[in-house]
Design a protein around this nucleic acid. Structure first.
Length: 823
RNA sequence: GCCGGCGUGGCGGAAUGGCAGACGCACGGGACUUAAAAUCCUGGACCGAAAGGUGUGUGGGUUCGACUCCCACCGCCGGCACCA
């Protein structure tokens, strides 16, 4: 046998990582305890859907840095709530179950077990005693309860309308789930329109608050902007024009405009093809054309209709309306560029000052009347003028600035009773019903005698029955409709025969309140315990991807405001601070996904390098918010670093004195490192935290021969392990225990630093001549700048640049530099 | 088209308006080895023999001094896109 006289063992993370995982769990190291007197910190990741594909290192880009924060905050003395649960309902889960021909219940359970295993593998410190699952009856019971609350408060309603239908998902989608006319899950699947009766939540009631309180959020600017655009608040006026049909009957047509100042320039009205007055107003001569156009518009896909490139088309209705300001007669047209779902579904067309109206007028030879004159020299040319200017051709309002005219004309309209200031939103109500199996059944019963009856709270949950055939049908009905045992029930009001609602709730309803369930995950009498929720919520730091900018993140804000109004929670925003992690791309540059064939699993990385190397590399790879590219060789760097740490932090006898200069240098380095890493972690800069630690270990490597058997070395190594503990929990714990550190390193306090010890004994002063570096002066920290200035001016390296020149100015920056300006 | 964000070595990236390229990857040279791996030491922005000069997408500006602030342009990424 070869003699392997190595002083220490090699760094082999597989030898001890599993051991610590078990021990941490046994010792309940990460259990969050309600109502501790310590300050609380609620750290949460977006609610994940446990996919059969399992986790990739792309997911680690979210979970690892968040876990680092959780561990850091615990060491800072916070009572940290860092829970995990499963957004297990929903289409992807159901589709996967269909594909595998396994009931979704079973499939989900297996996926959850795998996710959990993978998360533990990576050393995440979730409190698993608070694990929740949205597809369990003890959870969705309360999702249903919230639906009833919405209904009670008048915020849930049923309505018929043309809705987006994805032929692949075989269900209706919410507006937020339609992307440029395509399904958000099937990006090559155009959505179609179906006329169906659906359930909605009245999110538009909260549009103003959802918009205004964005200002108070510490969220990425991008997300705030996207929400602001999505809500799309426009201010202007609603103006009532009076239309007459060919028989001489009058009908009011309200229009919404953001430019009431241009009303004198309105030369025709345009109604949406679906506008209810179209049928009434169409003249006998025009009726044929009008109906043909309406049918064509109905057939158009959303993509065709939304295309801005396409020429504007329309048809004259055969009727006229009176402009309430001018008394002028204007023709009424229909055109598909006017949408029924926005504003009033009708507009006054001002071709001189609106590009769309201009194009329409040009095509159909309708009159154009200029009423806003731009400043002199303003670009004339093609198209509508939408800029600022002075009002002309507008009777008594001539000469006013356009902004003044907005107010003046709105006031005049109000005075005459034909208009008023108005606000319109792009945001529509949230469509929450889905014609799919795998979701929370909507707790409603239809009785022939009593009509629609909510299921009483004490009869919740309405259980989702196991179904043999749970795949969606072609008929636009939920598979639940095929189960007579589910459908047929007794009316809760009269006891007579009744039918259950068979649609299920959008999964975004599940994720709109889950963050509160974590406060008291086992509560049986309420969705959450009010005191526990008051203690833990709102979320102090919420972390997830930017793809949920206008879906989940809007819905759960809405839910929170409703809950606040219901007295359930004392705050109106669920997550005052939000951060988005960047996307992890595979080595081939594509987003990491199974279909791109570039998935790297945490399992394979952990097997090869250990979890700490994975964690450190994920942190080191780049800024948290930035996208990253997985470089399979890049991890070597952090792995080598950890191997060196392993080697230098082995327990060592203390039997030598340290050399004083080295000891001081090490002490300073430790203090500086604590200071920097503290600032880095607070600022979410995990990449520089790791590089700071690498610098420290490089320095220690250099000082090691001089110091490794001195007391200061032992102290420094302990400090280093403490700073590393949140980033690399396993190696820190293993070395800590080998060194006899006592209780788990993860129960230790975050190290303090001494400001004085972060300052070097000497300072380096840069000497510039005309901004170019010519010399560097090493002077004692205490040296005053006046003396430094003299030294700089007399520096031999600087002299040649001063020769024959006149010194015009000397700029002195404290402890930093001297810049000599010469002419 | 409109609104954001970003442009720094071969690559990932670092730099309160004050030494550009920290820390790594990859690569070159060397040590150890019969050899290799691993490890350790070492080198490198570019031009130039050197002195020195030039460099943070391009062009201007502010400043004693600009990767950093301002203006214009180019490129990439993201969002929105007939919303009246």
């Amino acid at each position: 046998m070869a003699v392997t006289e190595t002083r220490h063992t090699r760094y082999e993370p597989n030898q001890f990582e599993a051991k610590w995982q078990d021990r941490w769990e046994d010792e309940a190291l990460y259990r969050a305890e309600d109502f501790l007197p310590k300050p609380k910190y609620y750290l949460l990741n977006f609610f994940p859907y446990p996919s059969g594909a399992g986790l990739s290192v792309g997911h680690s880009k979210n979970y690892v840095p968040t876990d680092v924060m959780a561990r850091y905050m615990r060491m800072r003395g916070y009572n940290v709530l860092f829970p995990m649960g499963w957004d297990a309902f929903g289409l992807p889960a159901e589709n996967e179950a269909i594909l595998r021909q396994v009931p979704p219940q079973e499939n989900t359970a297996r996926n959850v077990a795998n996710y959990k295993r993978q998360l533990k593998l990576q050393g995440t410190s979730f409190d698993w005693t608070r694990e929740i699952n949205a597809s369990h009856p003890d959870y969705y019971r309360w999702t249903q309860w919230f639906f009833l609350m919405m209904l009670r408060k008048g915020l849930a309603y049923r309505a018929t309308g043309l809705q987006w239908w994805c032929p692949q998902c075989k269900t209706i989608l919410a507006n937020e789930q339609v992307v440029n006319g395509y399904c958000w899950r099937h990006t090559d699947q155009p959505v179609e329109r179906k006329e169906l009766e659906q359930w909605y939540f009245r999110i538009t009631d909260y549009a103003d608050e959802l918009l205004e309180s964005l200002d108070d959020l510490d969220w990425p600017e991008r997300i705030i902007l996207m929400q602001r655009n999505w809500i799309g608040r426009s201010t202007g006026a609603e103006i009532t024009f009076t239309a007459r049909d060919s028989a001489g009957n009058s009908y009011p047509i309200p229009v919404f405009t953001t430019r009431p100042d241009t009303i004198y320039g309105a030369t025709f009205l345009v109604l949406s093809p679906e506008h209810p007055l179209v049928d009434v107003l169409a003249s006998p001569e025009q009726r044929g054309d009008v109906m043909q156009y309406q049918q064509r518009a109905a057939r158009e896909t959303e993509i065709q209709r939304l295309s801005t490139e396409r020429d504007k088309t329309g048809v004259f209705v055969g009727a006229f309306a009176t402009n309430p300001m001018t008394g002028e007669e204007m023709p009424i047209w229909i055109a598909d560029y006017v949408l029924m779902g926005y504003g009033t579904g009708a507009i006054m067309a001002v071709p001189a000052h609106d590009q769309r109206d201009f194009e329409f007028a040009a095509r159909y030879h309708l009159p154009v009347r200029e009423v806003i004159e731009g400043p002199p020299g303003a670009p004339g040319g093609e198209g509508a003028y939408a800029g600022p200017g002075t009002v002309v051709n507008s009777g008594p309002f001539d000469g006013l600035d356009a902004d003044e005219a907005k107010e003046a004309i709105t006031a005049a309209l109000t005075e005459k009773g034909v208009g008023h200031a108005a606000v319109t939103y792009r945001l529509r109500d949230w469509l929450v019903s889905r014609q799919r199996y795998w979701g929370a059944p909507i707790p409603i019963v239809y009785c022939d005698t009593c009509g629609m009856v909510p299921v009483p709270e004490d009869q919740l949950p309405v259980l989702l029955p196991p179904l043999e055939h749970f795949a969606p049908g072609e008929d636009g009905r939920s598979p639940l409709a095929n189960d007579p045992n589910f459908v047929n029930t007794a009316c809760p009001a009269c006891g007579g025969p009744a039918r259950r609602e068979t649609d299920t709730l959008d999964t975004f309803v599940d994720s709109s309140w889950y963050y509160l369930r974590f406060a008291s995950p086992h509560e049986v009498d309420a969705p959450f315990d009010a005191d526990a929720a008051r203690y833990w919520a709102p979320i102090d730091l919420y972390v997830g991807g930017a793809e949920h900018a206008v879906m989940h993140l809007l819905y759960f804000r809405f839910f929170t405001k409703v809950m606040a109004d219901a007295g359930l929670v004392p705050f109106r925003e669920p997550a005052p601070r939000l951060r988005n992690q960047g996307t992890m791309h595979g080595a081939n540059g594509a987003r990491m996904s199974k279909s791109k064939g570039n998935v790297v699993t945490p399992d394979s990385v952990v097997a090869e390098y250990g979890a700490d190397s994975l964690r450190a590399y994920i942190c080191f790879i780049g800024p948290f918010e930035a996208d990253a590219f997985w470089d399979p060789t890049g991890i070597n760097g952090v792995h080598r670093w950890l191997s060196r740490v392993w080697d230098m932090a082995q327990p060592m006898a203390v039997d030598r004195e340290a050399g004083e200069p080295e000891e001081l240098e090490l002490r300073r380095a430790i203090n500086k490192t604590i200071k920097r890493v503290t600032a880095d972690l607070e600022g979410f800069q995990f990449n520089t935290a790791v590089s700071t630690l690498m610098e420290l270990s490089n320095l220690m490597q250099r000082l090691r021969p001089a110091l490794e058997r001195a007391e200061v070395w032992r102290w420094a190594t302990d400090q280093m392990l403490l700073i590393m503990a949140p980033l690399t929990p396993y190696i820190s714990e293993e070395l800590w225990s080998r060194r006899g550190g006592g209780e788990s390193i993860h129960r230790q306090a975050w190290p303090e630093y001494d400001e004085v010890m972060t300052i070097d004994e000497v300072k380096t002063i840069v000497v510039q001549v005309n901004g170019k570096v010519r010399d560097r002066l090493e002077v004692p920290q205490s040296e005053d700048m006046e003396s430094v200035r003299e030294q700089a001016l007399s520096s031999p390296k600087v002299q040649p640049y001063l020769a024959g020149k006149e010194v015009a100015k000397v700029v002195v920056v404290l402890d930093k530099l001297v810049n000599i300006v010469v002419r």
